Structure formats: C-alpha cells, structure tokens
Simulated assay, not measured.
Amino acid sequence: MSWQAYVDTSLVGTGQLDKAAIISVAGDSTWATSAGFTLSASEMKAIADVVTDSPGAKDKAFADGLYISGERYVIARAEEGSIYARKGREGVAVAKTNQAILIGHHNEEGVAGNATQAVEKLAEYLVGLKY
C-alpha cells in the first residue's frame, strides 16, 4: 500500500479525521498528505523533535504551542512517541513509528479519543511491519 493510501484509507477513511499527513521520523520530508494539509519544514521538525524526545523540545512545545499547517495548537498531552493538541474544539493526534510520524486532524465535530485511536492504531500496525 502506498503512503497516500494509508492517509486516504487508514486515517481519513476511518471517518474520525478530516485531514492527515505522514512525514519522516526525522521531520525532513512529507511522505503523504491530505489536500490542503501542508506542514512547513519548521513545523515538521518541531513535531519530530517532540516525539523523538529531543532535549528541551517538549518543554518548548508546551510553552509555545505546536504549529501544524499554520495553526497554533495547545498541547494537552505529550507522551513517549505521541502528542495530542487542541485548538478550541479541533485537535490533532500525532504518533511515531520506527520510520514515520502520523498526524491526524479532527474538526469541531470530531471526538478526540476516536481520532487518537485511529492514528495510534495505524502506528501500531506500521510498527508491526517494521516501519
């Protein structure tokens, strides 16, 4: 399956997310994304730094927020390899695999727990495939 198919089918296709992206674990390239869900180089690097526990990255993100597709999100939870952040009733769930970072966005009607579960389920599957 292509990376774009994972975004379209396994993330957005769940109905729990309205936009999603898959980036490299280094935060230096986009592998697949939904239309209109573009992350800048600095946004990808900041996300990668937090999920890979780069020194000081998590504290900075908690203090300054996390920017995704030009929007500022407040981090609600950042654990080893995952992030959940909100902007009002919208939210983003992020999960790291061995080689990739999955980012899923839910709109105001979305349920945070369901969105997080969709992202984490695909992450677990990819880890099982050694990705």
Rank of each mutant, 00 (worst) to 15 (best):
M44V: 08
G88H: 04
E109V: 13
A95Y: 07
G81I: 09
G110W: 06
F37L: 01
L126C: 04
D64I: 08
L39I: 02
T97K: 10
R77Y: 13
E80G: 12
S34C: 03
T14A: 01
T97S: 09
A41Q: 04
I68S: 04
R77M: 12
V74H: 09
P55T: 00
D59V: 06
A5F: 07
V94M: 08
Y125Q: 10
Y131F: 14
W31E: 10
A26H: 11
E43V: 05
A26E: 15
K96P: 06
Y67G: 01
S2A: 03
S82G: 11
R72W: 12
D28M: 08
Q117M: 15
G88I: 07
Q99N: 14
E79C: 08
V51L: 02
A32V: 02
S54R: 13
A61I: 11
K87A: 10
A118P: 01
V92K: 00
A26N: 13
E124S: 15
R86K: 15
D59S: 13
R86Y: 14
K121V: 13
E43K: 04
T52H: 07
G27R: 02
M44W: 01
K45D: 09
A118Q: 02
I83Q: 08
G36W: 07
G88D: 00
I103L: 05
K130G: 13
R72P: 00
A123R: 02
D53K: 15
A41W: 03
K130M: 12
R72Y: 06
R72C: 11
N114L: 15
G15Y: 09
A32S: 03
V25E: 10
S42E: 15
K96A: 11
T30Q: 14
E80P: 12
A26Q: 14
L66V: 11
A20C: 12
A35G: 02
V94R: 00
D59M: 04
A115C: 03
L17M: 05
L122H: 04
A115F: 02
A48E: 06
G113R: 06
D59C: 07
